[in-house]
Design a protein around this nucleic acid. Structure first.
Length: 215
DNA sequence: ACCCAGGGTCATA
DNA sequence: TATGACCATGGG
């Protein structure tokens, strides 16, 4: 079970289609991608509900709203002062580029490089925006993905860039988004940072619980 | 009283 | 380039 395609099929059979990203609009994906940084998705949902209630769940509104107004609304998502600034920066940047459609029309790596210059956008947030809001074929090598892929031996890389590159090279474009979502599903299920017991994964043959290999 | 959650920025060596 | 401090809420 070290083949990426086999792993994808196994997870799909076990968990079913995940239908990520959980959002109603593409702009909401961008907002959620920032809010979910190092925070449980459950908390992000409250923050998004608050933004919606205040009429601020759009890039145009967030680009114009002062951080002092946004911060209390996104309080449940943690790091609210920093994230209020991040949301404004990201919203303004995407709009200045000409919106999500413009981002989609750029070549992947070019769009990615542009996003990485924006305050609040690192590799993972960039890939989430590109993959789930801008229709690009990229892979989000988040903590769950690196943990599972490293433990199974499905990838040999231990860095974000390395894991992403191996997955991009090893899977068809149409499976990238679903694959990431399935890895998160497994992560939330049994493949925890510290497994309850050291042993063998009940789902993945040959995957022993061990320290995550992430960097 | 811990540990964890779908990271990123900044200062420092 | 590679660490470490910092950001902060909510659930198990």
């Amino acid at each position: 079970m070290t083949n990426l395609n086999d792993l994808h099929d196994t997870l799909l059979a076990a968990f079913g289609p995940q239908g990520w990203w959980p959002a109603e609009t593409a702009e909401e994906v961008v907002i959620g991608a920032v809010l979910t940084q190092a925070v449980a998705w459950r908390n992000v949902e409250r923050a998004i509900a608050n933004l919606r209630g205040a009429g601020l769940l759009s890039l145009a509104a967030l680009a114009a709203a002062p951080p002092e107004v946004v911060a209390p609304l996104i309080r449940p998502a943690g790091y609210f002062n920093v994230k209020a600034r991040k949301l404004r920066a990201v919203a303004a940047a995407v709009l200045e580029l000409g919106g999500l459609q413009a981002l989609r029309n750029l070549p992947l790596e070019q769009a990615r490089t542009r996003l990485l210059t924006v305050f609040g956008v690192g590799p993972e947030t960039a890939d989430a925006i590109l993959g789930y809001a801008a229709g690009h074929a990229t892979f989000v090598a988040d903590a769950y993905a690196c943990r599972v892929l490293g433990r199974t031996g499905a990838v040999s890389a231990t860095t974000y860039a390395g894991v992403r590159a191996e997955v991009l090279a090893g899977l068809p474009a149409e499976h990238l988004g679903e694959f990431h979502a399935l890895l998160v599903a497994l992560g939330k299920d049994t493949c925890r940072p510290r497994a309850p017991r050291c042993g063998t994964c009940p789902l993945l043959d040959g995957c022993a619980y061990a320290e995550p290999r992430i960097r």
